[in-house]
Design a binder for these strands. Structure first.
Length: 427
RNA sequence: GGGCAGGUUCCAGAGUGGCCAAAUGGGGCGGACUGUAAAUCCGCUGUUUCGACUUCACAGGUUCGAAUCCUGUCCUGCCCA
């Protein structure tokens, strides 16, 4: 099956330039996706472009991952209501390095292969271009009218926060990337999320006007959740690919908690399972949705892809302990080491052991440990019946935490709500 | 540079001298139900030693008392140049 039809049944094609499919049939094609260095780790939202590159490479084409050292300095205004904060150079450089390291884990960079992945940083070519050169050589070819007509900037043009020239230039800069890669790397195609369509088309336009060549592109629909909320967030914030920011357990839980309808889409987009396999999984899931077969398979596949089999195993184990039949008695039976091991991935906090000798009221304890940002919040949540200590719900705020509260040796397990576990270790 | 309209708690957006820690909606969090879903319903949503304390762009001022009035500063939008 060719790349486009593969992606099509997976629901990963939104817009596509005419001729793209033919180009991919014709020869090994180099295509690129851009990654924004807004943080020092990629997150699940970036997983889509990673999957695109991965599929591309599997189909025998050559993936190019562009990290936006230059574009990151400007900030993409596409569909955003407000200008975002600019990052300083040090942060940017740090983020770039981290992101590069991550990408290397997911794509095949083996240079002996003809379609090995490559990484490029647009800062490398932009740092030598002067402003005057740019506006003369590049800016000349695109009209402001054309740029303003883009849906992606409409929000800002109509909105009440305005758009700086810096941001407005963004699409030109990204467009130039495409032209540059077309020239230097024979890169004829760009992919991305559908929010990038405007920027991408500016690129193909530049390739045509400036280089007289034909460039291709397609975009993937933005991942939407059924309830319309933003994909890629959980109670505790962004879901990162970096195990230090989002542990494999949390990562696994994120996928496991997917809504039934969402899971049907996700499994097509975020796994490499074949169509027949996925269809039978979906059918089976619909038989008895309560088993959440689909979510489990989805979580397994994605967690394994990102964190490896070992990360997945641990995530499963922790999940079974916390959500399975195992009671608090099971937890008590573990030694200190076993406890830490089995709960890897659960958020861990530390408190000085000394605070237990005299005892501390729960509210203060939870606030000081950092589980709640203030005592008031801790108190209100407890009063609302939202906090459990070692598996049993707290009924009042006047409990004293002391040595008798220890689960086993040195730790206390708190639970906020149904799914948020916190292990407080006494040190 | 000129004119006009604005800057309120996470967001949107009321409030125009005391009844304002500030309506309402959204979001977030928690509870019930359930499948660690969805939908629905309910509660919470500045801090607190619960006496208070710090908030309504910033700095001053008027007043017994200001988010609300005055002066200056900064920022934003719209229109004109």
């Amino acid at each position: 099956m060719n790349l486009i039809s593969e992606l099509r049944w997976r629901g990963m094609i939104q817009d596509i330039k005419p001729g793209t499919e033919e180009q991919l049939e014709k020869e090994m094609t180099t295509a690129y996706v851009g990654f924004d260095p807004t943080a020092d780790s990629l997150h699940v939202g970036n997983l889509v472009p990673i999957m695109l590159l991965k599929h591309l490479q599997r189909a025998g084409h050559k993936p190019l991952a562009l990290v936006g050292g230059a574009t990151g300095m400007v900030g993409d205004p596409s569909f955003k209501a407000e200008e975002r904060k600019m990052l300083d150079l040090d942060t940017l450089a740090h983020n770039l390095r981290s992101i590069q390291a991550q990408l290397e884990k997911y794509l095949d960079f083996d240079p002996s292969k003809p379609n090995s992945a490559e990484m490029v940083n647009n800062y490398d070519w932009f740092k030598n271009i002067t402003f005057l050169d740019f506006i003369r050589d590049v800016g000349k070819h695109i009209t402001v009218n054309y740029m303003m007509a883009k849906d992606s900037v409409k929000k800002r043009l109509d909105g009440d926060s305005g758009m700086s020239f810096t941001e407005f230039s963004y699409q030109m800069i990204q467009g130039y990337d495409f032209y540059h890669l077309y020239n230097q790397k024979n890169c004829k195609m760009q992919m991305g999320g559908s929010d990038q369509w405007g920027n991408i088309v500016t690129g193909t336009e530049l390739v045509r006007r400036l280089g007289g060549g034909e460039a291709y592109a397609f975009t993937c629909p933005l991942i939407k959740k059924k309830d319309g909320t933003k994909f890629g967030k959980s109670e505790s914030g962004n879901i990162w690919l970096d195990a230090n920011k989002t542990t494999p357990y949390q990562f696994y839980q994120f996928w496991l908690n997917a809504d039934d309808d969402d899971a049907e889409n996700y499994i097509r987009i975020f796994t490499f399972l074949e169509e027949a396999v996925i269809n039978s999984l979906i059918a089976e899931h619909r038989e008895d949705a309560g088993k959440r077969l689909l979510q489990k398979k989805l979580a397994q596949e994605v967690t394994t892809f990102i964190h490896g089999a070992e990360g997945y195993e641990k995530a499963i184990k922790t999940s079974e302990i916390l959500f399975g039949k195992a009671s608090i008695e099971t937890l008590r039976s573990f030694s200190e080491e076993e406890l830490i091991h089995v709960l890897t991935g659960v958020l861990q906090y530390e408190m000085p052991a000394a605070s237990l000798t005299e005892g501390k009221d729960v509210v203060t304890f939870l606030a000081e440990a950092g589980i709640f940002s203030s005592k008031g919040e801790a108190r209100k949540t407890i009063q609302g019946g939202g906090v459990s200590l070692n598996g049993s719900k707290l009924t009042g705020v006047d409990l004293i935490i002391d040595e008798s509260s220890l689960l086993n040796g040195k730790s206390i397990l708190f639970q906020k709500g149904k799914k948020n576990y916190y292990l407080v270790r006494m040190v």
